[in-house]
Design a protein around this nucleic acid. Sequence first.
DNA 1: TCTATAATTCGACATATTTCGAACTATAGA
DNA 2: TCTATAGTTCGAAATATGTCGAATTATAGA
Lengths: 110, 110
Amino acid sequence: MSNYRFQIEQHADMFKALGNPHRLAMFRRLVTCCTPGTVCDPNSTFRYTVSQLGHGLEIAPSTLSHHLKELNRAGLIEMRRNGKIVECWIEPAMLETLRSLFEITPNNQT
Amino acid sequence: MSNYRFQIEQHADMFKALGNPHRLAMFRRLVTCCTPGTVCDPNSTFRYTVSQLGHGLEIAPSTLSHHLKELNRAGLIEMRRNGKIVECWIEPAMLETLRSLFEITPNNQT
DNA sequence: TCTATAATTCGACATATTTCGAACTATAGA
DNA sequence: TCTATAGTTCGAAATATGTCGAATTATAGA
């Protein structure tokens, strides 16, 4: 079953989070298997610290923190403290869910 | 080349448009090849009129119009007047662009 | 031409978002 | 324990968004 209205609201919430240019830039940085000079593994994503994600965006640390919290709340990114820093990454399964919303399918909704 | 900042802002604008539950519901209705009782063609999308898209959403006509204008402005939907009604549909190429933003790739940005 | 239907524009208002600086917490290392 | 680094929380201010009703435009058909 899984309530259609609820699903729509949940997905809208994800897109709203991606609807800010700063947040989208950080998200896109995370949708990455490797960076120049690292070993590439196409089945997992790269990990960045909070301040690495904010690099180049010219926003205050408090704003940066607010945006990442928002991405995390929407279920778009994972975060875990590791000593002094906080690591951020993306779960590939979440990407597949998002891609599926842009696949043309027969319409069987209400 | 194609300015990275500009691209991000353009894409963020699309996601912002999808970030409203009413707009996402209408967009999803359009990401459809057929409805029950119609002939299915997986390579093109179904066309709806403005009021068909608003059906079931319980919003004023002015709000409906505002939302569709927003989706159109962001480049997510096409609209054309056909007599008394306005037809709305989606271009499949646009869907492919959006899907690609959720594919894991090597990072070569700034 | 008159009318009904479909959709848009405009102005107003309530609510949400983005951003910042200041103050705070967490951790590692000297 | 003290200090520096990394990140978060809080409150405030400016701006943007979602929504409506009333008025308007576009079209087809009687």
